[in-house]
């Protein structure tokens, strides 16, 4: 019964959406909105082929590297800035300014500065994904419990130990929230960066299909993006559950108590 309920919740809404889609496309042919069954067969035809290797894997590769860079840079810089009042005072206005600029606007500039290669795409994605992680890390570091900090000081927790046992775990709930945000942003930026001056990738394929008026194929690319988004989210939540197990337990305990 519980399993059924879970399956129902997971697939319920998408199933309803697909049913509506089927019903509205059943009568008449709208060229620009293909029927679900045609969608499914086109999807298999397009992506279950060498395209997986020529376009999907490069895209996923770019996204992975960008997210990794954003994570490392974001956390390291975030901790440094969070721990230093001077750095914070110096950088906070600048950070808020840069974060407000959508990195897609910078694409023409980056095209000029870096060129039409993977580095440019990674730069676009990192410039968008870095800020949620960095700013959340700073906030997480700043909001460490005062009593816990004093305890750490009293027991001689210094330098790298302090970061490893106090700062990083303490800031991890906020850091994870920042990462979740970056995942969503990153996927969008990946696609957009591949729509300009690209030679491969999922975004490139979608634009290509649009140019050739290959509408079902274009939609299949979009569906693929959705699927990747869901997979990323599921993977992230599994990781989050492990990393923040203590945090959920703590929240639950304080809610009961």
């Amino acid at each position: 019964m519980i399993v059924l309920k879970r399956i129902g919740m997971w697939f319920g809404l998408p199933a309803i959406l697909i049913a509506i889609w089927w019903a509205t496309t059943a009568q008449g042919v709208n060229f620009f909105v293909p029927k679900p069954d045609k969608m499914a067969s086109t999807f298999a035809k397009v992506w279950y082929s060498e395209k997986f290797f020529t376009d999907v894997l490069p895209s996923i590769g770019r996204l992975s590297i960008s997210l990794l860079i954003s994570l490392v840079l974001g956390v390291v810089l975030g901790i440094a800035i969070g721990l230093s009042r001077n750095l914070r005072w110096l950088l906070e206005p600048l950070l808020e300014f840069v974060r407000a600029v959508p990195s897609t606007i910078l694409i023409p500039v980056l095209l000029l500065l870096i060129g039409i290669n993977d580095t440019m795409k990674v730069a676009v994605i990192v410039l968008g994904c870095l800020w949620p992680i960095l700013l959340n890390t700073v906030e997480g570091v700043r909001s460490l419990d005062e009593v816990l900090k004093n305890t750490a000081r009293v027991y001689g927790l210094r330098g790298f130990d302090r970061i490893r046992y106090l700062v990083l775990p303490g800031a991890s709930p906020l850091i994870m929230a920042g990462i979740r945000h970056s995942l969503a942003v990153g996927l969008i930026l990946l696609v957009v960066s591949e729509m300009f001056a690209s030679t491969d990738g999922i975004g490139y394929s979608i634009i290509n299909f649009q140019n050739r008026v290959a509408i079902p194929e274009m939609w299949s690319g979009i569906v693929l993006l959705g699927i990747i988004g869901v997979l990323l989210s599921v993977a992230f939540q599994a990781i989050q559950k492990r990393v923040l197990g203590w945090y959920y337990g703590l929240k639950e305990a304080s809610n009961d108590g």
Binding site: L13, P14, L17, Q210, M218, I222, S233
Partner: peptide, 24 residues
Amino acid sequence: MNIKKTRAAAVGAVALALTLSGCA
């Protein structure tokens, strides 16, 4: 959380599709 993400993904996909199809 799961549900929200799936819903968001579905909505986002539809929105993106409509934009690219130029319907909107």
